[in-house]
Design a protein around this nucleic acid. Structure first.
Lengths: 199, 199
DNA sequence: GTCTATAGGCAGATAGAC
DNA sequence: GTCTATCTGCCTATAGAC
């Protein structure tokens, strides 16, 4: 059943694809499912996108460009003011994750997208570049690990239901900086459990 | 070409399946690929495992049981010594992630596995239970966020190439505790980039 | 425990009418 | 821009011989 001429078909396709990819995964979602939900046919999809993978390329393009911008910003920052630079860049990284939360979910949860040169590989390279920039050119292994922990704390936004407000943002940024600065903690002993839970 | 009777066929199948699932994803890996790499046939796989999804169930069983044990430990701990309890449980959680790094990769990267009641849903419930236990029964939203940040810092192990040594472990645990304790940091301004990187 | 052979289905993708 | 119709190929899973 045709829907007639609409302005936003392409955007509707992308939105629907994102929905289904997030819920079921990229590989587990067929073009038939996407088409059915939109009440069009598979062939109609192929008018707008030459192949299934192109859906992911388009869905992730904006995020990846923003991430590339952030790396460029990092490279342009003077190394002299190290602390201010770290704070600023982690803050921008946090904003990026919040803004593109769904796309990041898509990328991190779908191995099939991670080997695509314009998507997964590009993302990996950019993240690696950011980590390198944050640690500094003369960074020791420990500094790199500290940066990884800080970025990990920021990644906790991905685990959370919804992001709301400046207070939450400030807390996560504070946690990331504290993770970076932290003293090592060793020699912790764990007692044995009384009974297993869950089965 | 038959391989004759071997003791470890079942374990070889699981190891090969894990390899391929990690490299390509669960959905993107066919039973034919697994069989070919092992030099057996698809039908032989079905002798050992009744369905493809059973491979994931077996691969994740040990990790999920260990995680359930950790939740049980958390429930058995006295709430009186809050700080020691938090340190101890985060430490055990870190050990768990290190020990089962590959399985965690498998779970977190494959949406298709995440709706299975004995795998993804069980994992989600256990992680949620652990977060709740760590935050405490009377926890405010902010405490839960702090726990999420701490667990996020620990999750940084998943981003790292290899885990080696007590020093690295101590650093990550320290970062997690510091993330939990951190003061909020607000009002950071980001300058604009000079030029985009990467294309 | 492993094989051959095949059923039965759905995938991604294309051709060409309208 | 969307359709119908169809191709080709691979998928999971099963039956039954050895």
């Amino acid at each position: 059943m045709p829907r007639g001429s609409r302005i936003g078909t392409r955007e509707e396709i992308l939105a629907t694809a994102l929905d289904l990819f997030l819920a079921q995964g990229y590989e587990a979602t067929s073009l038939r499912e996407i088409a059915e939900r939109l009440d069009i046919t598979k062939a109609a999809l192929y008018y707008h996108f030459p192949a299934k993978e192109q859906l992911v390329v388009e869905l992730t393009r904006q995020f990846l460009n923003d991430l590339a911008d952030l790396v460029a910003t990092a490279r342009a920052e003077p190394l002299s003011e190290r602390r201010a630079r770290l704070t600023e860049l982690l803050s921008a990284y946090l904003d990026l994750l919040i803004e593109h939360q769904q796309v990041i979910d898509l990328l991190s949860r779908n191995p099939a997208t991670q080997n695509h040169p314009d998507v997964g590989l590009r993302a990996r390279n950019l993240i690696e570049a950011l980590r390198t920039e944050l640690a500094g050119p003369d960074a020791k292994a420990e500094d790199k690990l500290r940066v990884a922990c800080a970025m990990g704390a920021i990644s906790s936004v991905a685990m959370l239901p919804v992001m709301d407000g400046e207070r939450v943002r400030a807390l996560i940024l504070g946690a990331a900086l504290a993770a970076f600065d932290a003293e090592p903690v060793g020699d912790v002993v764990v007692r044995s459990p009384s009974r297993r839970v869950g089965d």
